[in-house]
Design a protein around this nucleic acid. Structure first.
Lengths: 221, 221
DNA sequence: GCATTTTTTAACGTATACATTATCAAGACC
DNA sequence: GGTCTTGATAATGTATACGTTAAAAAATGC
């Protein structure tokens, strides 16, 4: 029952699950004592885990009010997508500069195929998972730990909202065309083109998602 | 002697000072017990402070090896400046979009004037401080908390290196022309121009600093 | 009834204790 | 001499204890 890693690691992992699943509702407050009891540990590791998650923007620790599950407003979503757009576009350019050996591109290729498959079977959850993988691979290929770290953090922050809107949005059938074009530009070693294509892709996705949140009056996710 | 804020706050503030001043040397390791004693507190708040600084990329906490003061390699510097370039350029564009009232631009204007003054008197430390202020004001005007947070974090990571190279570099006389042009584009409400100008400015600064580190064989700062 | 003061409560910040376990050194063995 | 085993050491991860203090509740005054 102890699981792998230290109690702090366990707490971080479990709290993340609970946040992404909605088990801990956005905007809700939770006392340290309560969370610690829930996770079967003392306050010490729980507090350290909360600090780590706070640094990643997932919670806010406020004295006497407990740990708040950071809610996402439409404005936050817009802000995050703007940054994601810039950093992932930069990553695409860097990935294209590196003249990747084909083996390195296997992950992106597989992600694209998986998205096609998921779309064909209408499995949106698998599609979202493969889409995540595509973007994660992209930043990995950039070779920049820091870009990967920041992009990962921001992607976590919008994870709930993306899941929530997954079934409200039109089927992302055109999306994979974008992905393929970005991959082609990387494979061909054309940084400017990769950057431009990916920027347009992300911009469109961001506008669509913000639009969805506003249209459905989701003031807080 | 207790100072303001909680012991964790104090520890974060004092460790930051010690890191930036070089009092804690880049690459050096420090046991929790030792640091806690040095700051006159127990390990509990020290550990929490270390976690916060780790999330900001200033230290790495490694079991049994203590808290490592994260060193900066030339490659890191390049990586950080690339991200800074993108995000600050984005900030410049957003700042220009907002059609700032003149009062909001006072901080940037003052920073530019202070840099002129500092250059005239050859006071490089004041120049660096005013330069920091210019960039901090820029991201503030963007209105994006997240851009400000990330840019601030990255600026902290290169702080030591910038101070170290401050007296190796040519006098940054042309730099303020760039600043003025960026400010003019923001004042005139021209986002694309602001973005383009600031990007060029940051790119040049980054290349110069990386060049300096390499030229002086500073493999780790 | 409503505002203000006092009392109570309990959440937090921090110190401390302690078992666990990685690291280092000494010794055993080949 | 070099490798492996064993034991000592001490740094860590975590639980627990407790004083402080903010927030809530109760009591008081109007």
């Amino acid at each position: 029952m102890t699981g792998p890693g230290t109690r702090v690691d366990q707490a971080v992992a479990r709290l993340r699950e609970m946040i992404f699943s909605g088990d801990l509702a956005p905007g809700s407050d939770h006392l340290e004592t309560e969370l610690a009891a829930r996770l079967g540990m003392s306050r010490t590791p729980l507090r350290e885990a909360a600090l780590i998650l706070e640094a990643q923007g997932l919670v806010a620790v406020r004295p006497r009010r407990g740990v708040r599950i950071q809610p996402l407003l439409p404005g936050d979503m817009r802000e995050i997508y703007e940054i994601l757009t810039e950093l992932e576009s930069l990553a695409a350019a860097r990935a294209a500069e590196a003249r990747q050996p084909e083996a390195e591109l296997a992950g992106m290729t597989a992600a694209i195929d998986d998205m096609d498959l998921a779309l064909a079977t209408g499995d949106l959850t698998s599609w979202a998972e493969a889409d995540d993988r595509f973007h994660a691979e992209l930043v990995r290929l950039s070779g920049s730990r820091r870009i990967a770290g920041i992009v990962g953090m921001l992607a976590d922050q919008v994870r709930r909202a993306r899941r929530l809107t997954l079934h409200m949005r039109p089927l992302p059938t055109a999306s994979n065309d974008d992905h393929r074009r970005v991959l082609a530009a990387i494979r061909a070693g054309r940084p400017d083109e990769a950057r431009r294509l990916h920027r347009a892709h992300r911009q469109a996705a961001g506008e669509m998602l913000v639009g969805l949140l506003e249209k459905h009056h989701l003031r807080q996710v």
